[in-house]
């Protein structure tokens, strides 16, 4: 009977092992998703405006609304890469008071999640190490709080040339790149993701 129980315990222990991808393999490159207005004719636009050193920041846990180059090394290379990609595709950069055809918004959206779990110490494979009052090495369960941050880098290209009658702008192209909070090398991966966003959008050219 003891052999039977040992076998059963071994089987249950092994069954509890659930293989998953290594975290390093998962986050070594960002997911890049792009969407566009397929009625838009991008060759009809020639100029754009983009900030130099500031990107937007939307978070439920922070009052900051922007990320600036004076406080972070992230905005400047990101904006320079977007600028470079647009110029390669034949668009010319102008300042925002020179009536650009297109506006480029760059922002990070941060989602902060918290969840809780009940932890049972000495709990192995479905069996407690002891019972209340019977065993000195039994520990009472406790609540553990986990938190994780997720974030997406977003690029939006909006149509400033054809404002709607009520002065609204139409979004012509968006790129979502994530996750920016779980990276091995944020700047390199972000720049690669931006390049990929433009590569997979061949229609985005003059």
């Amino acid at each position: 009977m003891r052999n039977y129980l040992l076998l059963l315990a071994a089987a249950l222990a092994f069954a509890g092992c659930r293989p998953e991808p290594e975290a390093v393999e998962l986050v070594d490159q960002m997911v890049v998703s792009t969407n566009y207005d397929n009625t838009a004719d991008f060759s009809a636009y020639s100029t754009y405006a983009i900030p130099t050193d500031t990107i937007g920041f939307i978070s439920e846990t922070s009052n900051d609304t922007i990320i600036v180059a004076s406080k972070s090394s992230f905005p400047r290379p990101v904006l320079q890469r977007i600028n470079s990609e647009l110029q390669t595709r034949g668009f010319g950069r102008v300042s925002k008071n020179q009536n650009p055809d297109l506006g480029v918004n760059v922002l990070v959206v941060n989602d902060f999640n918290v969840f809780q779990d009940v932890v049972y110490p000495n709990y192995y494979g479905g069996y407690y190490g002891g019972y209340y009052g019977y065993n000195s090495w039994y520990s009472y369960p406790y609540v553990q709080t986990y938190a994780y941050n997720t974030g997406v880098l977003i690029i939006e290209i909006v149509d400033l040339k054809n404002l709607t009658p009520d002065n609204k702008v139409k979004v012509l192209w968006t790129a979502y790149m994530g996750d920016v909070y779980s990276t091995i090398e944020l700047e390199r991966q972000a720049l690669e993701a931006i390049q990929q966003a433009f590569t997979q959008s061949p229609y985005l050219t003059r």
Binding site: E20, P21, S33, T34, N35, Y36, S201
Partner: peptide, 21 residues
């Protein structure tokens, strides 16, 4: 493991690598 690829759809595309389990 499915290496990085770009999947295109009518209004865009997505690029990533996948781990199917």
């Amino acid at each position: 493991y499915k290496p990085t690829r770009t999947i295109e759809y009518s209004s865009g595309a997505i690029t990533t690598d996948y781990f199917n389990y």
